[in-house]
Simulated scan of single mutants.
Amino acid sequence: MESLRMITSTVTPLDRKNVDTDQIISKEFLKRIERTGFGRYLFHHWRFDAAGAVKESFVLNDPRFAGSEILLADENFGCGSSREHAPWAILDYGFRVILAPSYADIFYNNCFKNGILPIRLPQNVIDRLLADGQKTPLSLTVDLEQQTILRKDSGETIPFGIDPYSKEMLLNGWDEISLTFQYEDQIAAYENRKAN
């Protein structure tokens, strides 16, 4: 996994509540066995019509948000099934940070395991960011080490919380396997003691 320390990006404002994992990555695209390649199917039925034509009105198709690494969402983001393909699609598309007032628990934990920082912010803060971000592209700097979000336009700093374990994993770019390798010497010593 790639480490995540600081992201400065235009924010993509997805003003929808209760976005479920089937909307994030629809079931017909789950046949791949790799973790990559799902980005092109992110929000597929919202981005394209039945004939495959781009829906100009959908926020991901707005050129002002091209290359965005921060997805701004509303409450209960990632609800529905527990498919890990949802964070795979979000990451493969290019988003490294998600801001929302609440998440489905399994989706929230899957984000950390795949190198995405899901930040919970109060509903009134999300509402304000969504409103401002829809009027004009909004640039934010997310600093994981300081646990702050800086608004470039106003200079406002928004603090956020994160548990120390998840923070360390993201800062170092570790998943559970990488973390296990940090204890390789101790594991080898234990195995040697058991063998003797």
Rank of each mutant, 00 (worst) to 15 (best):
residue 90 I to W: 02
residue 92 D to V: 03
residue 102 S to M: 12
residue 112 F to Q: 10
residue 91 L to I: 11
residue 110 N to H: 13
residue 112 F to G: 06
residue 84 E to R: 08
residue 83 R to D: 00
residue 100 A to G: 09
residue 84 E to I: 14
residue 98 I to S: 00
residue 97 V to M: 01
residue 91 L to Q: 12
residue 102 S to D: 08
residue 82 S to W: 05
residue 111 C to A: 06
residue 107 F to V: 10
residue 106 I to K: 09
residue 99 L to H: 08
residue 84 E to P: 13
residue 87 P to R: 03
residue 111 C to S: 03
residue 101 P to Q: 06
residue 101 P to F: 00
residue 96 R to C: 14
residue 104 A to G: 14
residue 111 C to W: 00
residue 96 R to G: 13
residue 103 Y to H: 05
residue 81 S to D: 05
residue 100 A to P: 13
residue 90 I to L: 14
residue 104 A to C: 12
residue 100 A to K: 06
residue 81 S to Q: 08
residue 85 H to K: 09
residue 99 L to R: 07
residue 85 H to A: 14
residue 86 A to G: 11
residue 103 Y to A: 01
residue 102 S to P: 14
residue 81 S to E: 06
residue 100 A to D: 07
residue 91 L to P: 10
residue 89 A to F: 05
residue 84 E to A: 12
residue 96 R to I: 13
residue 89 A to T: 10
residue 82 S to F: 03
residue 101 P to N: 06
residue 91 L to M: 14
residue 101 P to H: 02
residue 84 E to Q: 14
residue 97 V to D: 01
residue 102 S to I: 14
residue 103 Y to W: 06
residue 89 A to L: 10
residue 102 S to Q: 08
residue 106 I to Y: 05
residue 110 N to T: 07
residue 85 H to R: 08
residue 107 F to S: 07
residue 109 N to Y: 09
residue 83 R to V: 09
residue 96 R to F: 06
residue 106 I to P: 13
residue 91 L to Y: 13
residue 107 F to A: 05
residue 98 I to H: 02
residue 94 G to M: 04
residue 109 N to G: 15
residue 84 E to H: 07
residue 96 R to S: 15
residue 89 A to P: 10
residue 95 F to A: 05
residue 107 F to C: 08
residue 81 S to H: 07
residue 106 I to S: 08
